[in-house]
């Protein structure tokens, strides 16, 4: 990119430090290229607030697509010998929660917690994982579907958070990056690129078809859990149905009799009834109805005429004159 070399690269942007990374030239694309990583001390916003990891974390923006934890370890080691505890990739955290796995049930608008062994939560909060949480995590993993991708690739321009061993290390990294940027130097980006290419897709293809027994087991675990949850839920409902609350009222809940009608079925039945009713009377019964019907029709025709007129008008405006080709 010779044209770009004339550009002046900024060394910092807002509160970000810009760390240039030199990308390895490849046989298929030998032009040397530089990637720009943006670093900033982590500053969580919103409800989460700072936790104990915050002071030793760096927020990285615009990470390379093939970034991995080992790659970042190597990077910061070569930069200033900094030790990384772990890397959290933003994209990996944004997994949708599994709907049924939370042990909650909404009963008549009130949220009820269902007591079963695996408690709620699939929120992977960093650090502070109690023994309970570990159990939850394990149970969830047992139920999760097998992964189909070997190595993950991030969207171009993704973000991550790096947690260093301590705050000093983090600050050294920031300082060193700033120095590097000013000098106009670049750190070499090393990620194991031998794993990429066709090989990675082949692995994906193989992983798409997990061994049947493993899949079966995961499904079984899940369904067992789900059944438990369901029965707990129905038990609770039953209890609500039979026990009056403190004011002496018995809550009306679903599922009182065997096989209650589903809402949509009831609606369909109502629709049918209406239809039958209409057929029996046979349309317009009174003369005024016929008259009104006719008027309505006339009005419709009139409206349609106006509408068509407008349509042709807009067509004319759009394509100018009508001309045979």
């Amino acid at each position: 990119m010779s044209s770009k070399s004339s550009l002046k690269i900024a060394t910092k942007v807002q509160d970000f430090v810009v760390l240039p990374l030199s990308l390895p030239p490849l046989p298929s694309y030998p032009t040397p290229a530089t990637h720009y990583l943006y670093l900033r001390p982590e500053a969580p916003k919103g409800t989460d607030g700072p936790d104990e990891d915050t002071p030793r974390s760096l927020f990285l923006a615009n990470i390379p697509i093939d970034a991995t934890e080992p790659a970042f370890r190597t990077l910061f080691k070569t930069l200033c010998g900094a030790l990384v505890e772990r890397v959290d990739f933003e994209a990996a955290l944004q997994k949708p929660s599994l709907v049924a796995l939370t042990g909650e049930a909404i009963v008549q608008g009130t949220l009820v917690n269902v007591p079963i062994e695996v408690k709620r939560g699939k929120k992977r909060k960093r650090g502070a994982e109690g023994a309970e949480d570990a159990k939850v995590k394990k149970a969830l993993e047992e139920m999760e579907l097998p992964k189909t991708w070997g190595r993950e690739i991030w969207k171009s321009g993704s973000n991550a958070t790096v947690v260093f061993v301590d705050e000093t290390t983090r600050n050294t990294v920031l300082k060193e990056s700033r120095r590097m940027a000013k000098k106009g130097d670049a750190v070499e980006w090393q990620s194991n690129i031998e794993e990429l290419g066709e090989k990675r897709y082949r692995t994906h293809h193989t992983l798409t078809y997990p061994p049947k027994d493993i899949l079966q087991q995961k499904i079984n675990t899940y369904l067992t859990h789900f059944t438990k949850l369901e029965s707990a839920r129905s038990k609770l409902l039953l209890k609500q149905r039979s026990v009056p609350d403190e004011d002496g009222f018995v809550t009306v809940t679903r599922g009182g009799r065997a096989g209650p009608a589903r809402l949509e079925e009831a609606q369909a039945a109502a629709e049918r009834l209406k239809e039958r009713e209409k057929k029996r009377i046979g349309g317009d019964f009174y003369r005024f109805q016929t008259r009104e019907g006719r008027k309505l029709k006339e009005r419709e025709l009139k409206d349609k005429f106006e509408e068509d007129k407008k349509r042709v008008q807009s067509m004319r405006e759009r394509r100018g004159k009508i001309r045979p080709e």
Binding site: L23, P25, L26, S28, Y29, T31, H35, I65, L196
Partner: peptide, 12 residues
């Protein structure tokens, strides 16, 4: 440049 390098790395 970096994006093209990314594509080359990914495609291997």
């Amino acid at each position: 440049g970096a994006i093209l390098n990314d594509i080359a790395r990914l495609g291997g």
